[in-house]
Each structure stands twice: as C-alpha cells, then as structure tokens.
Computed example of a mutant assay.
Amino acid sequence: MDLPDGLTAAPYTVEALDAVFAVAAAQQQHDIGRVDVERADFEADWARPSFDFASMTMGVYDGDRLVAFGELIGANRGEVGVHPEYRRRGIGTALARWMEGAAREHGYTAIGGPVPQGSDGDRLLEKLGYGVRWTSWVLQVPAGATIPHRDVPDGYEIRAATPDDHEAVWNVVEDAFLEWSVRDREPFEDFIATVVRRPGHEPWMLRVVSDPSGEVVGTASLVMAEDGASGELTEAYVERLAVRKDQRGRGLAQALLVDAFEQGRQHGAPRSGLSTDSRTGALSLYEKVGMVVSDTWVNRGISL
C-alpha cells in the first residue's frame, strides 16, 4: 500500500474492535453529525463463518493507533473508514485500491459501498471512478410522533419468531432481497450470526407474520440502538423487512412495520428508523406510516 511516511498497514483481528469502532464513529460524527454505527455491527459481521480477518481486513496505523480501516463485507460490498484527523493524505485512496485487490482475490466482479451523499468519501470515490449504483435513504419516525396501527387480514398473525421459524425467516428474506439485489444467497449460518446471535438480540426483536395455515410469510427484524456514551436506548431500527412475493398486496408489510415500531417503543426506544434504497421502490411505503427522510446516501461501486 502507498501510505504517507510513518504509517503502516496490516490486517487486524477481533481485538481491534474498539479501535475500528472508534474510527467508524468519528467518521460518522464528522460526516452526518451523529453516530449511528454500533460495536455490535462489527461484532455480528465478524462472527459470520464466511468472514476471514486475514484476507478481508486491513488497518492503517500511526504507531500503535489504528487511524483507518478497510473491510470486505461480502460479495461486491466493502467499507472504508478514515479518521477525520487523517484525511486528505491518500489513505482513503490506498485502502480503496487494497479493497479492489482483495475483492479480486475473492473472485468478486465488483466492489463498492455506501457513503453519505456529498461527503469526503463520496467525492473521493467519484474521483477514483466509482459510479453511483443506487441511492439510499435513512428514515425515522420522530420521537413522540403517532404510529398508525395496521391490522392484518383475518387468519394472519404477527408474533415473535421461535427457533423453529428461523429457516423460514431466512428464506423469506433472501427470496425477497434477491429480487433486486445482485449477489449470492447469504448462507444461513451468516444470517443467524448477524441476526439471532447479534450482541443484544432478544427473541422479541425478530417478528414474523404467519398465514392462516401457520406458515411464515413475512418478517421484520429489529435492532435496539444505544447511545455510545450513555448507554441509553435511542432508536428501534428495522434492519430487515420482507414479505413473500405471493403474499403482497394484503398490507402485511405495513402491519409488520408498525408492529416493529410499537414493540420498539414498548421496550423503551424513543424513536424508530430504517433505511431503504432506490432498487426496492419501497420509499412510499415507509412515508405512508409517517416516516421522514433524515439522510441520503449513495452506494458507489466499480467493476473489477
């Protein structure tokens, strides 16, 4: 890697969790004015059986201090973080080029990731030839806003998932997401690691809707976000929402969404949030239940 004098680079291990999180948090605070990322985001990703630190991570160090990092998250997806104090020194460029090489070694045909629209990262990736693949929006139900309740059709039921539901949930999510996402099917073990075994997860956070026969036909998974400094709950974040294709048009997605919001508030979260992107065509669904856009991100990528 072509780095400024005095800086070194090497893959990191799970022991770097606090250092990687610190860089990611500083970057978000600088770029969007708040910290949405959590340590559990990294812990869950790193716990996936498919994740390999030696070939999928790279840290940049100033002495013993980690000041930037790059990760391959999965097929065609990566993330780079540079502490704001170390920007405009070529570190982001070096990590982007490392990520491209690592992606080639894993057999990926493209690489990229999300950056806040108009941020330093957005401008850098554009300069490096990364085009916009899609636009993403972060939406919130503001604290104190009324959540309109949605009933499900007769015979349908929304409830917490049980371990017996996990494979059905995985299939519903993957079938739905692969309608518009160009990637391989996520391994079931990776799904379990990032959802069911994510630090802080409790059974009530994984919601399902079943049809009159009892079959799972839709799901929503929640993450309860905390303030990194105080530990107070800040948001119930709907990480995944999916309804089986043949069950759409019955209002199940809206009902699942509102149920997730209600569950989040009952468990102490003052507001609710999620993200969606231009591939799904779901923005209007979320606006119908009172959500408003708080941030816009672009996913930039490059063919390899």
Score class of each variant (00 low, 15 high):
residue 3 L to I: 00
residue 4 P to L: 10
residue 4 P to K: 08
residue 5 D to K: 10
residue 6 G to R: 08
residue 7 L to V: 09
residue 8 T to P: 11
residue 10 A to Y: 04
residue 12 Y to D: 05
residue 14 V to W: 02
residue 15 E to N: 14
residue 15 E to A: 15
residue 16 A to W: 03
residue 17 L to P: 09
residue 19 A to E: 15
residue 19 A to W: 02
residue 24 A to S: 14
residue 28 Q to V: 04
residue 30 H to D: 10
residue 30 H to T: 03
residue 32 I to S: 06
residue 36 D to F: 01
residue 43 E to Q: 15
residue 48 R to V: 05
residue 51 F to G: 13
residue 54 A to C: 10
residue 56 M to T: 11
residue 60 V to C: 11
residue 62 D to L: 13
residue 64 D to C: 07
residue 65 R to T: 13
residue 68 A to C: 10
residue 71 E to F: 02
residue 71 E to V: 03
residue 73 I to S: 12
residue 73 I to V: 15
residue 74 G to M: 06
residue 74 G to W: 03
residue 74 G to E: 10
residue 77 R to K: 07
residue 78 G to L: 01
residue 81 G to M: 04
residue 88 R to H: 14
residue 93 T to N: 05
residue 94 A to H: 04
residue 94 A to R: 03
residue 95 L to N: 03
residue 96 A to C: 13
residue 97 R to H: 11
residue 98 W to A: 09
residue 101 G to C: 03
residue 103 A to F: 01
residue 104 R to V: 14
residue 105 E to G: 12
residue 108 Y to W: 12
residue 110 A to S: 15
residue 111 I to G: 12
residue 111 I to L: 10
residue 112 G to Y: 01
residue 119 S to E: 08
residue 121 G to K: 02
residue 121 G to S: 08
residue 125 L to E: 01
residue 125 L to C: 07
residue 127 K to V: 05
residue 127 K to F: 01
residue 127 K to E: 11
residue 133 R to F: 05
residue 135 T to N: 05
residue 136 S to K: 08
residue 136 S to V: 00
residue 137 W to M: 08
residue 137 W to I: 02
residue 137 W to S: 11
residue 138 V to I: 12
residue 145 A to C: 06
residue 149 H to T: 13
residue 156 Y to C: 03
residue 163 P to I: 08
residue 164 D to L: 11
residue 166 H to Q: 12
residue 168 A to R: 14
residue 170 W to F: 15
residue 172 V to G: 03
residue 172 V to P: 04
residue 174 E to P: 02
residue 177 F to G: 08
residue 180 W to S: 15
residue 186 E to P: 01
residue 190 D to H: 12
residue 193 A to L: 12
residue 193 A to M: 04
residue 193 A to Q: 08
residue 193 A to V: 12
residue 195 V to M: 05
residue 195 V to L: 06
residue 197 R to P: 02
residue 197 R to Y: 11
residue 199 P to N: 07
residue 201 H to I: 00
residue 203 P to L: 07
residue 204 W to R: 12
residue 207 R to D: 08
residue 211 D to W: 03
residue 212 P to K: 02
residue 216 V to N: 09
residue 219 T to A: 15
residue 219 T to F: 05
residue 222 L to P: 06
residue 223 V to I: 15
residue 224 M to D: 06
residue 228 G to M: 06
residue 229 A to Q: 14
residue 231 G to A: 10
residue 237 Y to C: 00
residue 238 V to Y: 01
residue 239 E to L: 02
residue 243 V to H: 00
residue 246 D to W: 02
residue 247 Q to T: 00
residue 249 G to D: 09
residue 250 R to G: 03
residue 253 A to I: 00
residue 254 Q to T: 11
residue 254 Q to L: 09
residue 255 A to D: 04
residue 255 A to P: 01
residue 263 Q to G: 06
residue 277 D to I: 09
residue 277 D to Q: 11
residue 278 S to G: 11
residue 282 A to D: 07
residue 282 A to C: 08
residue 284 S to A: 13
residue 287 E to N: 05
residue 291 M to S: 02
residue 292 V to R: 10
residue 295 D to F: 04
residue 300 R to N: 00
residue 302 I to R: 13
residue 302 I to D: 00
residue 304 L to D: 00
